[in-house]
């Protein structure tokens, strides 16, 4: 009897596992080809030339570029990349969370703001960049406003090395509230209304409610977003291709990669820089993981 039961249980377990692995089969193959193979190869390619022969030339080339210090093309790109990353972190976390909270707490006009704040997510970057470029161009509304306020000719915002990166940074801030806003608002919408009622009776105000109630309760969401962005310290990027094609001192590491991979087909040289970028950003990632582990996972109530 026990034997038959055991057999049935085993048969059921086998069927269950066949179902599970069948459901995951496509994803596993995809992972093996486009993640495992690609990433393993990305560590081998820096030590190969275009014909697949082993060489240290790519590493030497990256090191010689880096040895030029502030004049190095890579260092210049790194500086811009870090600027975009810092701006991204600021808008993705405190600002997006604050915006989402205010909309959730129904500030005056929240219904219309809810729609308008989503425009950057709804509309293509190509569209927004085209509009922004024309707003900033000579004779455009921003230039006209500049001339009225400062009484002198407006700079060529996007076509001058002194102002180009700053102008793109403003664009990045202007358009970065879409997806994060939805995710935070989605998490907040699941907070039971009784908690807000209770906190109101306890005299918790608008701003205190954000720090003492909303933030701890959506911490699981917030922490996942934080971890997801921790590894991307060197992937901070503005839409450089659409704005300037890397000119006027606006290039980033991401754009440099695009240029070397897609336009110049220097796969191995680009991979060598990739290894360097990995080595630089790994400690930052590990630090965030460490801090994340020390903080509580969630708030039970």
């Amino acid at each position: 009897m026990t034997g038959i039961r055991k057999k049935l249980i085993t048969k059921k377990a086998v069927r269950k596992h066949i179902f599970i692995y069948a459901m995951m089969a496509v994803a596993i193959v995809h992972f093996a080809v486009f993640f495992l193979y690609v990433n393993i190869n990305s560590f081998l390619m820096p030590f190969q030339n275009a014909d697949g022969m082993w060489t240290l030339d790519n590493i030497k080339l990256v090191l010689s570029n880096l040895s030029m210090g502030a004049q190095s093309e890579i260092v210049k790109n790194l500086k811009n990349t870090l600027i975009y990353y810092a701006v991204g972190i600021m808008t993705q976390f405190p600002l997006s969370f604050f915006f989402a909270y205010c909309l959730y707490r129904k500030v005056l006009g929240y219904k219309i703001f809810n729609v308008i704040f989503m425009i950057p997510m709804m509309v293509s970057t190509v569209v927004l960049v085209a509009v922004y470029k024309n707003l900033l161009s000579a004779g455009g509304p921003v230039s006209v406003l500049w001339e009225r306020v400062f009484g002198k000719q407006a700079p060529f915002f996007l076509y001058d090395e002194r102002t180009a990166t700053a102008s793109i940074v403003v664009y990045v801030i202007w358009t970065s509230f879409g997806l994060n806003l939805i995710i935070y608002a989605g998490a907040m919408s699941r907070i039971p209304p009784e908690l807000w009622e209770q906190s109101r009776l306890d005299g918790v105000g608008f701003m205190r409610g954000m720090t003492t109630l909303a933030f701890p309760l959506i911490w699981p969401t917030f922490s996942i977003m934080l971890l997801l962005s921790a590894g991307g310290i060197l992937s901070g990027d503005g839409p450089i291709l659409l704005f300037s094609g890397g000119m006027y001192g606006t290039s980033t590491l991401g754009y440099w990669m695009y240029e070397n991979v897609v336009l110049k087909r220097l796969y191995n040289y680009a991979s060598a820089l990739g290894v360097f970028m990995t080595l630089v950003s790994l400690p930052v990632f590990l630090l965030v993981v460490h801090i994340r582990k020390r903080l509580p996972d969630d708030i039970q109530y």
Binding site: F34, L227, L228, L234, Y267, A270, L273, T278, V289
Partner: peptide, 24 residues
């Protein structure tokens, strides 16, 4: 393993993948 792949691997900063992926 699946959870590790989903939660940890995408967060690990590996940057050379773009070139290798394009080549593939």
């Amino acid at each position: 393993v699946v959870l590790f792949v989903q939660f940890v691997l995408p967060m690990v900063p590996i940057y050379g993948g773009g070139a290798a992926g394009y080549k593939l």
